[in-house]
């Protein structure tokens, strides 16, 4: 770090307000669209796994292996297919990572419905698919949202690494700061990533209150 360079140049922040807002918005899209895509995949896959339990272990194994891969390596491997500096290079692996979190939560949530509830539903004349859709799925919403909170925060953090392959919203501030030995953008990036994660988490907690009001303060 250069002598005399302050940790944070407040003026720089003021001058680049619009730029920082753009990067934050970009980061939110890159990080959270994959989570939404993963949710759209996790629900039908989870329902299928709940209906046909044998599917679950192999699927879970695949996504666990994907989850174990270092993100940067996956970004680099994807470049020949998606091109450098395209959003897809970052968003495809992020979708897989989110799915690796959401699929088990979806399946666990569907399975967590108490057996008497399941039996009562069957005894009232719900077929297996209809019961999954009308009883187990809505009853598993609190679980799903719990999984979404983990997946969203981890995706926001991972998306920053995408800057190393040319995309990555707020991650660009880290690359920029290191190259110029200029700490202000680095600290701003850290703060904005944390703020974005916090805001997303609060939004999901609010969503849980709206979508599953019955789960509030329920111990079981």
């Amino acid at each position: 770090m250069l002598d005399g360079e302050p940790l944070v140049r407040w003026r720089w922040l003021g001058d680049h307000f619009g730029y920082l807002a753009d990067l934050t918005a970009d980061h939110a899209v890159i990080a959270l669209v994959p989570v939404l895509l993963a949710l759209l995949l996790a629900v039908p896959l989870g329902l299928a796994c709940a209906r046909f339990p044998r599917m679950y272990q192999p699927l879970a194994a695949v996504f666990n292996v994907v989850y174990a891969l270092p993100s940067l390596a996956v970004f680099v491997v994807l470049i020949p297919y998606t091109g450098l500096a395209t959003r897809e290079t970052v968003m495809v692996p992020l979708t897989c990572y989110a799915l690796a979190v959401l699929l088990p939560t979806a399946v666990d949530g569907l399975r967590a419905v108490p057996e008497p509830v399941r039996q009562a539903a069957t005894a009232m004349g719900y077929g297996p698919w209809r019961r999954l859709a009308a009883v187990e799925l809505p009853a598993s919403v609190p679980y799903l949202i719990g999984g979404l909170r983990v997946a969203a925060v981890s995706s926001i953090s991972l998306a920053a690494v995408g800057a190393l392959v040319g995309r990555g919203g707020l991650g660009y501030l880290f690359v920029d700061g290191f190259q110029r030995t200029f700490p202000t953008p680095i600290l701003a990036g850290i703060a904005l990533v944390a703020l974005l994660a916090l805001a997303t988490d609060l939004l999901l907690v609010a969503a849980r209150r709206v979508l599953a009001p019955w789960a509030r303060g329920v111990a079981r």
């Binding site: 108490p114 008497p116 005894a123 019955w214």
Partner: peptide, 16 residues
């Protein structure tokens, strides 16, 4: 089943 009422020990009410 829709023509037969069924009551069980833990009630089995739909929580949602």
């Amino acid at each position: 089943r829709r023509g037969i009422g069924y009551v069980i020990q833990q009630a089995g009410l739909f929580p949602h």
